[in-house]
């Protein structure tokens, strides 16, 4: 396949994944705003913006972190190049430019995703329809993933799409974990915290892991357990280990089809070894923030190596 097409499908998948994760973060923020006082809500909105790297740009434009402003800025801010709407637009533009690499079903799902969200986001989102909008983002992006799963040939095109998805997802989960822990708990050693369960639930909810975690732990919340779950539990589809396992199998697919490995494979293997050797105790000992920072930087390096090794651009 063309290097340019590999680049297109990789970014299409990344943008859709990011849009979906952003919708989840907003959902949690919105829930907090409803159930906690205005101060807690303000802090929550701030942490959402920090997580997706848009706090500085937002603060330059708005004096206060009010729900409607934050939600609209993130979803559809006309001067926000990383709004959900422009991400979906970018995903569709990428899909259009790789139209011959994807099936008709995938293209139509992507196009429909854009059309639905463009219409929903044509006017400011209000409290009364924010739930509908966030639900539509999740549903539409899920539909694209479903069309991929159900109709795409399992060749390198599919591999590049999945690699985009899991690079993005690993990055997003890591950032959520980092920011939330930073905000909620200065020290992981602090066991038996007085913070109530609802706070911890927001972390899990942000990655759609609340139900799974409760089921595994009979309802009890503890910071270490949550960190271990989000980083090391290979059964949970948004954990770091899970994302890296998927990266590994899709990279192995590329190696098979290309008759050999590249520098990206080596980088991924090294990072995988570090992740597998890690235990939650060691991570805490080292400092969660530092662990996450290194993880995010490592993921970026892998992404860059893939782009170079497979000639995404000239």
């Amino acid at each position: 396949m063309l290097g340019r097409s590999a680049n297109g499908i990789y970014w299409m998948s990344r943008y859709l994944e990011r849009a979906e994760n952003t919708a989840r973060l907003l959902d949690v923020g919105f829930r907090m705003a409803l159930t906690r006082g205005p101060n807690a809500a303000r802090e929550e909105w701030k942490s959402v913006l920090i997580t997706i790297g848009q706090e500085a740009d937002f603060a330059r434009r708005f004096p206060d972190h009010l729900g409607p402003q934050v939600v609209n800025y993130i979803l559809r801010g006309p001067d926000n190049p990383l709004s959900v709407l422009s991400m979906v637009e970018d995903a569709r533009t990428n899909a259009r430019s790789v139209r011959t690499a994807i099936t008709r079903e995938v293209w139509e799902a992507t196009n429909e995703c854009w059309m639905v969200l463009r219409d929903l986001l044509a006017r400011p989102v209000r409290e009364t329809n924010v739930g509908e909008v966030l639900g539509a983002i999740r549903a539409q992006t899920t539909q694209v993933r479903g069309a991929m799963d159900g109709t795409m040939l399992r060749n390198e095109i599919y591999n590049f799409s999945r690699i985009g998805t899991f690079i993005e997802r690993a990055d997003n989960t890591a950032r959520i974990l980092d920011v939330k822990y930073y905000v909620l708990l200065p020290s992981l050693a602090w066991v038996g915290s007085s913070l109530d369960n609802a706070q911890w639930e927001t972390v899990l909810r942000s990655v759609a892991g609340d139900r799974a975690y409760r089921w595994l732990n009979a309802g009890s919340m503890d910071p270490r357990g949550i960190a271990q779950f989000l980083i090391l539990d290979g059964r949970f589809p948004r954990s770091l280990v899970f994302c890296y396992e998927k990266l590994k199998s899709n990279m192995a697919g590329l190696a098979r089809q290309h008759g050999g490995e590249t520098s990206a494979h080596q980088l991924l293997r090294d990072a995988g070894v570090r992740l597998h050797e890690a235990s939650i105790e060691r991570i805490v000992e080292k400092g969660l923030h530092q662990f996450i920072t290194e993880f995010i930087a490592g993921t970026i390096r892998i992404g860059e190596a893939i782009a170079a090794d497979y000639r995404f651009i000239e």
Partner: peptide, 23 residues
């Protein structure tokens, strides 16, 4: 068939060639 743009193509060894993920 492949859908190519000008930037995907160049002259290589007396032929027109497209930049694929494998060269």
């Amino acid at each position: 068939a492949e859908l190519v743009e000008g930037s995907d193509l160049r002259v290589v060894d007396g032929r027109i060639a497209m930049r694929t993920t494998a060269g």
